[in-house]
Nucleic acid binder design. Structure first.
Lengths: 234, 234, 234, 234
DNA sequence: GATGAATGAGATTTCATTCAT
DNA sequence: AATGAATGAAATCTCATTCAT
């Protein structure tokens, strides 16, 4: 089978799996059902994806790829904009991505929970065999830091064009933004959509607030100064 | 068996389960292993906890109870402090709690992911039967909003004592703080501990920054004004 | 479960398997069907016998044990008879055993085909993994030579009591008898029963002839002399 | 493709299959491996032989054809010899054939085990579909009795030329000889070769003894008389 | 006729969970 | 309440066999 054809088939399967996982969750999803949703047999399914976990990681990989693509196209759209605008747009892109794709956002969060700092040689006892053998687990490691790095680079660009405060640490700020996004997404996912209110709060307001906050932290000298002087006392 | 005795045994089991889940994760943990870690047989284990998920929810319940206790004792410690200090202390309490208890923080995040707004009558298709039948699932629903409510009340107290800006919405701010905490915790858990740096960032700095930020957002008029005027442009 | 109980259950399973194998043959027999014939589930079946081949070898072991028992009781019946009579009775016992138990005789023949001289360290490439791991494969090796040895010993007894010619080699004669038995059994099994004639030959006549021949070879000096003088010319 | 070309290819495949079956046995042999041993693909293999069993029966057919050819050439060599010599030569031919071709002898024995008296209308439940549909299964039925018949005819010739006792039944004796051969072969195959001793017996001695015995049974009046008078007592 | 992909049947395994004693 | 055995659901694997191109 030509690569392209094989790839199409893989895509079909992944999409079928996404529908099933989205509908009933990982645990309840049966390989049999995923296969029949994809219009193939279980064995064929296994010939493409060697385990249920591998299939889940394939979806995770797709999620991250999709996110990365959105990042790149966002960067492209903002290549002439100021750095700070681009950074905010990236954060907004991530948030929107999570709003639009419950499954994707969950897979990404699951993934980041799982890796537990792959940089260091930590104990892998929590990884299942299937995960360790998954080709997608490897592939994910190659691109997992991409959104992070792209954001950090954009912050630097902002510092160069003067739109972002020069005394902030790009890495730190990226991590800070990352934690905003995850926090927002988790709250969002615990809710269902940003249309339905959680405790009477419209989650869209939460998003907007986070974005404003991010912008201020990146570029507002007054805010920066004030923060500098906050006394923690803890 | 007297209640107390039974309760002691339940505790032993839960603690054994915590050790096992902590070591190998939920998926890899076997009921058999948990039973033998607790020094009992599988069937006895089942007589106490009717399913693996129920056991996990029992731990989750314990996690939330523990968190709530820490909240209460934090409130007690700060009953004479200003509202804003108390709120910041609560946030710090939650963060520290997550730092100290990887398993507890994961169970809580899992739980909040799972409930997906129990307030509204959403589809429960992703809940397993075991979860629906779990007594701890019910018990959790009774206390799940407690930390949230306590925080909101403390913000109101802060507004009354003048330490917190009067024009902020306590519910909104609580949710905002909640998302900070979750974001921080997820980043933390993806790392391992706040001692080891992630991308060269000391996570303790991230924590301190978040706390400062929270304090500023609650009480700093200048920051509030600046934020008010941020133009999003997104 | 007490040993006895476990043993009873194992027996039930083996008997169920015998019925199924007898009815449809090894290849066509499904573990599922054997399980349900035994009134248990597949998994339980597997907990007793780890593979289909192991189950088959268990039947083989039973076949050999049964044969051995018949040998012992035959020896007991003939303990006061002359050696030659005992030897002929043993051969007749084996033949009858094969007549009565098509499955058993096939399993034994399969087994002896398979072992290919376990005495020497031959290549085991034809053995499946399941066979190599079978406990019954090991157990069979312990008793596989028993009927052979018992026969040889009985020939010696016959030589001592004068009922068997002193110049024959017990081992050689045993092997010779063995090949008679196998030859008869194979012809028999290719037929179905010794009641239905094969090429118009009543197989019972073949059996009687073989027994007569064996007796003559063991004890008839005239025949021995004649054979001695046969010129092969081949 | 011309018939001859097709036939050559078929031969190649059969020979490849023989190598594989010989090396690892029927059960362990994979069609994939046979195909690649033959330098073709699995599908091509299937276009020539419709099933694994059919392929095995093709080998069986070849075995029987080869045996038959050897019988004919043996007959030819002995067309001027006395009947008894010819019969003994036939038996020796069969035995040597089995010595030389482990796989062939096994296929033949498997085949004769399988047919279970095709003369009568027995239940075919143990035959697989693949066997029933095999063209070689049909072809085998046409020639399966040939060695048997040729032997019987040769015995008759011996009776006519006076070299074989007139009062024996050719069919019965042929069957008797057949069972000798099978018995010898099975013992042989359980051993490996007639060079290596089984229980210290040189299998070549067993062969020679069987041949002598056959000759005596066919032509020696003294032996016949003695046998006549053997008392079975069983 | 050749090829790579797919199918179908059934063996085997793993566990959470339940039963019987 | 404790124990060993059994169950049921689903994952996974192995191959002979078939399909589509």
């Amino acid at each position: 089978m030509k690569e392209s054809k094989k790839s199409i088939k893989e895509n079909n399967i992944i999409e079928a799996a996404e529908r099933v996982f989205d509908a009933v969750g990982f645990k309840n999803a049966k390989m049999e059902d995923i296969a029949s949703e994809a219009g193939i047999t279980k064995v064929t399914l296994y010939s493409y994806f060697q385990s249920k976990e591998n299939l889940y990681l394939a979806i995770t990989y797709r999620a991250l790829q999709t996110l990365n693509e959105r990042y790149y196209s966002c960067l492209d759209r903002n290549k002439n904009a100021k750095g700070v605008d681009s950074v905010i747009a990236l954060i907004e892109t991530f948030m929107s991505f999570c709003e639009d794709n419950f499954l994707y956002s969950e897979t990404l969060l699951d993934y980041f929970s799982m890796v537990r700092s792959t940089s260091s040689g930590q104990d892998k006892s929590k990884l299942t065999e299937a995960t360790k053998e998954s080709i997608y687990y490897l592939k994910l490691q190659d691109i997992q830091n991409l959104p992070f790095k792209l954001t950090a680079k954009e912050i630097q660009r902002g510092q160069e064009d003067g739109s972002i405060l020069s005394n902030i640490d790009p890495i730190f700020s990226t991590l800070q933004g990352w934690s905003f996004i995850i926090g927002y997404t988790k709250v969002l996912n615990a809710n269902g959509s940003n249309q339905s209110p959680l405790f009477n709060v419209n989650l869209n307001d939460l998003k907007r607030f986070n974005l404003k906050l991010a912008r201020a932290l990146l570029s507002n000298e007054v805010v920066a100064n004030e923060l500098e002087n906050v006394d923690l006392l803890v």
